[in-house]
Design a protein around this nucleic acid. Sequence first.
RNA 1: GGCGGCGUAGCUCAGUUGGUCAGAGCAUCCGGCUCAUAAUCGGAAGGUCCUCGGUUCAAGUCCGAGCGCCGCUACCA
Length: 507
Amino acid sequence: MTRFYVTTPIYYVNAEPHLGHAYTTIIGDALTRWHRLLGDDVTYLTGTDEHGLKIQQAAEAANVTPQEFTDSIAPKFAAAWEKLNIANDDFIRTTEPRHKAAVAELLQRCYAAGDIELDTFAGKYCVACEEYYQDDELDKDAEGEANQCPIHHRAVEFFEEENYFFRLSRFEDRLLDWYAAHPTAMTPEQRGNEAIGLIKSGLRDFSISRTSLEWGIPLPWDEKHVTYVWFDALTNYLAAAGFGDGTDAYKDNWPADFHLIGKDIVRQHCVYWPAMLMSAGIELPKGWAIGGWLLSGGEKMSKTAGNVVNPLDLIDDIGLDGFRYYVLADTTYGNDGDFTWEGLVGRYNSDLANNLGNLAARVATVVAKKCDGLGTAPAPDSPLAAVAAQAYADTAASWTSVQPSRALDATWSLIRATNSHLETNEPWKSEPGADVDRVMGDALEALRIVAVLVHPAMPDTAQALWERIGMAGNVVDQRLPDAAAWGQYTAGSVVTKGDALFPRIKL
RNA sequence: GGCGGCGUAGCUCAGUUGGUCAGAGCAUCCGGCUCAUAAUCGGAAGGUCCUCGGUUCAAGUCCGAGCGCCGCUACCA
């Protein structure tokens, strides 16, 4: 069985889950559901990033311990994914023992390899923020010197701190060589090019520890230091596979097939992370899928702009699958998408209500009137057979290249062709008989295949459609490509109409 | 400033290695149909493929320059 291991970024628990988190997580869910249909042994991982100064400060502000603070937020992510019907196999928190063990092991390996060294970090530090700033981030003082904290408007101080550094600069050539040997590792291609550009423009060593920080994982060989950000966060992907338990069992799940990431964390995932793995002598991931942002009304969501969208509110208005479908179908993966209510309703009405939902309804009605409510057999030589084969091939190819919007468009070509097929034959005008039976069988068979193909995007809808056309069992148990082959609809099945799958929504 | 990306129909986007590549969906208009959720089907209209120049028998596709938009420049799906 083919293993298929996909990860989302772990989400920082200083904020509650929002549309952006949901966007990436839904894409990963659909992608992994597709691979389950293919019969792959799938592991879909998501989780939460819980260490660092911001959490420490937020906990202090809330007058609780950092652990209590993260314990209160992390479940909100897990709960949100449950509501969005996310079928993740694991949910990792960076405060778990398995994660801490993996981080310690990875650090130790890189340290042993000589790629982590003690050095001096010097910079301008705001005591109030407890953060270092670059010159261009600071405001200028009366003499024109860049030394005013932009937040606290007070002078920063020049601090020196002993930090451990990861010698990223040593990996430039090795990374370029690796990517040259694996040209399709990053998708879409233009996003991959940006990562290559980052490497070519020169790599600097980066600091991996702080002595001023308490809420984190200590370095195994120097416990005064706590790991800072990336050695902690990125390692979750390895930890969930079992790395750090003292055995090589993690290799059963590693390497990951895809790290799903946003365009803003390309440097860390496509440059830092493979270099860290190279240093530790661990196999690199097979792929990175790099998405854009889902904007809201053309702008990045922010509280001040007042355009924050809560995905869970949308479900109440348009239904879970309507929302999932919109997110997947209306954005080109790799580019920014734009969430608007008008766009959501437009997509929903045209694709779901008018096309898919209405097709299911009209088929059920005609079967009731002309076939006694019992499904009939499709014609082996139906013109829809070729359309279905092409739709499957295109859908599969698009999921393989992590392009959900194209995959769904390919699936919809079969829905449109089925509506057209009905118009061509007008079974509602004919007397019951072989001709009507054949056409309705074609339509039912097309709906059967559609139910399977839309499952990754809309699991509940797929199952509902499956049951309405009278198929037994569950869509999730279907296996591709066999299930997409023409001619498997079971004649004699009871077809039921039911309420509209997707009631039209008025704007 | 540096690096990178993008610019194809009103909108969102497809367009392998240059040779029916000028396309799809939505929106618009016209017509048909009335089984269906005022749904659907057919047809039409709509583009100097950002601009200029170059290579070529042939360029949306390659090269150069320019214009415009955007991202990254080291916390952030």
